[in-house]
């Protein structure tokens, strides 16, 4: 049975804003709405997308989706609680501007920037690259004109993003585990240099 999808609570059909879709299942349309009597259904706004029901099977949100959300929330909360009970958040000595820890590191999610600063002139690493990445991200949907969502059709986009993702993760891992005094490379740091106290 063919059925009209759209206006069903925000599940807009692919690629169209749902505001433009119409739900006009034939039995619910009063005969008056079919235009001037006798002129037939030509004047009725045609449904924009007609799909088979089997392709777009829906379920009631409550409880099907709500239950999953509840489980997901419960799961991550339990996990965080466990971590919080057994692992304490770090707290070092009281702040002292006279003693510079070595290395002084930015929070982990900014270590990529710190890594870049290590390798490129500040104007590049601190300004040009971040501006490029942020503008690039914001503009992504407007630059990517490829209408397909299938990975096979989006090789360039997928490759570029994967490159970015791998670099971003690699920089963080390097910054956290392999950068030692004065932010120099140190293979042994990850093992904790037995016998040496790294904390200031």
């Amino acid at each position: 049975m063919a059925t009209v999808i759209g206006g069903n609570g925000g599940n807009g059909p692919e690629g169209r804003p749902p505001a433009r879709t119409r739900t006009l299942p034939p039995p619910q349309v009063p005969s008056g709405a079919r235009g001037v009597a006798g002129t037939g259904p030509e004047l009725v706004t045609p449904p924009l997308v007609v799909r088979r029901r089997e392709e777009e099977e829906t379920v009631v949100t409550f409880p099907a989706l709500i239950f999953r959300e509840f489980l997901a929330g419960l799961g991550i909360f339990a996990l965080l609680m466990l971590i919080s009970i057994f692992v304490n958040a770090p707290l070092l000595q009281r702040a002292n501007t006279a003693i510079t820890p070595n290395p002084a590191k930015a929070p982990w999610y900014f270590l990529g920037l710190q890594e870049l600063l290590q390798r490129f002139p500040p104007i590049m690493a601190g300004v040009a690259f971040p501006t490029f990445v942020i503008t690039g991200m914001i503009l992504t949907p407007y630059l990517d004109k490829n209408p397909s969502r299938r990975p096979q059709d989006r090789k360039v986009a997928v490759t570029l993003f994967t490159l970015y993702a791998v670099l971003a993760v690699a920089f963080v891992v390097v910054g956290v585990f392999f950068r030692a005094e004065a932010f120099t490379w140190d293979w042994l740091k990850v093992l904790g240099h037995p016998g040496v106290n790294p904390e200031v």
Partner: peptide
């Protein structure tokens, strides 16, 4: 990111102050 970064300073320990010092030093280069 900014929420996390701004919270980082609040404990006022060595980790906090120096991470923010390094972080805000990056802004200097603009």
């Amino acid at each position: 990111l900014l929420l996390s970064f701004s919270g980082y300073l609040l404990p006022w320990d060595q980790l906090a102050v120096w991470a923010i010092t390094v972080g805000t030093n990056m802004a200097k280069y603009a």
